[in-house]
Design a protein around this nucleic acid. Structure first.
Length: 464
DNA sequence: AAACAGTGCGCG
DNA sequence: AAAGCGCGCACTGTTT
């Protein structure tokens, strides 16, 4: 596959975007080097202690006996051999090359105290080597200057490197805090992150124009993720809490949009019940609730055989069918016709003026235009925002970008002006420039205290 | 020593 | 009929 700017506007977007990102790179981010060094020492000490403990375990005994001096805790190949050949655990999943998988999911399924501590240690090692040490390596005079590339990604999204600013930990609270404490606002400034609320969903709606989806977007009282959580777990609206909604969103809705299918969705939704200890808002354990609804088991999840009525798998299969054939049938029609047209011609054009041509799978054909255009929304806003800041002689510095969000270092006294300006650019001006954006765009903002660390960011209200 | 494939894991 | 999309980085184990 290759993608190319096809219109004058798209080429200009890339050229202006390139210049804007060069400014962002040059601005850079302030780093607390002293903290970083201390955090590295502390983390390495922790890892050392954990390793000492682990070495006492029977698994490590077998490991040492098998590999002798070559024993290496970082070798997944060795670990697989020990657990699944020597210790007699049964491997459930395998890599491309046929070796047993040893990722978090595969190990999490084993009941042995060793694997639990082992996974904890691995997490700390990831934090230390990729993030703490990786960050420190790139510091110059107390700042890092991550690259933002526009020429590397299939869909004409961006990527970031040296260091990668687009994958800093945040989902794991402890790990996020450990790393993000190293990022400092400049004196008298706050770090402010503004992101497009559900931007991919909104951009997708500009392609398929599904009326049900558009009303979910336009009507703030409606909530697609909550509704799907209700349907997947057979709940009433009042029974859906934060965690259950999260599962509806990340284990059904988004995977479905990206082209996943009911077998994987059923598996993760089912496993989440135990792993996340899901309970309805009125206090019924979710598994018990499903039993009351007549569902006692997950099902075989065997693609070659029909799902059995009464299983969770079967239920999710029906939810999936309803999702695409009833709820979002226009979206579904678009997926079909968009792909059919690609099959006939071998190419398609995105709303932002890029042509994608060459061999693509169905899911790629459906996802690329949305992913690319959603980022182009961000890129256009970024260039425009920079121009506006300059015009107004503001001191705010844009210091990063994460696919659907813009990170800036804002003097406290410019906070209100910046937030209002960002809203004007990202929600209003962009729709003048691109009339194909037929749904409202919304943004959300988070900010650190003055001179604070990025770990301390909290949601802030954008003034009207 | 450098390059490469494979694996795993962080993010949107 | 097929069966989530896009990245970068660290590390192992092998090849050049």
């Amino acid at each position: 596959m290759n993608a190319m700017p096809f219109t004058k506007e798209s080429l200009e977007l890339l050229q202006r975007g390139c210049e804007a990102l060069a400014v962002v790179e040059s601005n850079g981010l302030r780093i607390d080097v002293d903290y970083l060094q201390k955090a590295i020492r502390r983390t390495e000490r922790k890892i050392g202690h954990m390793a000492e403990e682990l070495v006492q375990d029977e698994v490590a005994w077998v490991w040492r006996k098998t590999f002798g001096r070559k024993m290496n805790f970082s070798s997944t190949e060795q670990l697989g051999n020990i657990l699944f050949e020597k210790m007699g655990f049964k491997a459930e999943s395998f890599t491309e090359t046929g070796k047993p998988k040893t990722d978090e999911k595969a190990l999490g399924a084993l009941t042995h105290p060793f694997v639990k501590s082992y996974l904890k240690m691995k997490k700390l090692e990831k934090a230390n080597s990729t993030y703490l040490k990786g960050l420190l390596r790139e510091v110059q005079d107390g700042f890092i200057h991550p690259f933002f590339n526009l020429h590397l990604v299939q869909t004409y999204r961006s990527s970031s490197s040296d260091p990668n600013f687009q994958n800093l930990p945040i989902r794991d609270e402890e790990m996020g805090k450990l790393i993000r404490t190293a990022f400092l606002a400049r004196p008298g400034h706050r770090i402010v992150e503004i992101d497009g609320a559900g931007i991919e969903v909104r951009i997708a709606a500009c392609y398929h124009k599904d009326p049900v989806m558009i009303s979910y977007i336009e009507d703030e009282t409606k909530d697609m993720h909550r509704d799907m959580a209700m349907q997947c777990y057979m709940l009433k609206q009042e029974q859906v809490g934060k965690k259950i909604r999260y599962c509806g969103k990340n284990m059904f809705v988004f995977p479905q949009f990206y082209g996943d299918w009911y077998i994987d969705c059923a598996r993760s939704l089912w496993e989440a019940i135990g792993n996340m200890h899901l309970v309805t808002e009125d206090g019924i354990p979710l598994k018990e609730h499903l039993q009351n609804k007549g569902i006692f088991e997950l099902g075989e999840l065997n693609p070659k055989e029909d799902s059995r009525p009464g299983t969770f798998e079967h239920h999710i299969k029906l939810v999936e069918r309803d999702f695409w054939e009833k709820r979002f049938s226009v979206y579904n029609q678009w997926r079909k016709s968009w792909f059919r047209k690609y099959e006939e011609t071998g190419w398609f054009l995105t709303k932002t003026g890029f042509i994608c041509q060459g061999v693509m799978k169905r899911n790629e054909v459906i996802n690329y235009p949305v992913q690319g255009s959603a980022f182009h929304w961000l890129l256009w806003c970024l260039t425009q925002l920079l121009a506006e800041l300059k015009k107004r002689n503001m001191k705010t510095l844009i210091i990063g970008q994460i696919h659907d969000s813009i990170v800036a270092d804002v003097p406290d006294e410019e906070m209100e002006e910046y937030l209002v300006l960002a809203k004007k650019v990202m929600c209003k001006m962009v729709r003048k420039f691109w009339p194909w954006i037929i749904v409202p765009i919304d943004i959300e903002a988070e900010a650190t205290p003055v001179g604070g660390t990025w770990a301390e960011k909290k949601g802030v209200v954008i003034p009207e």
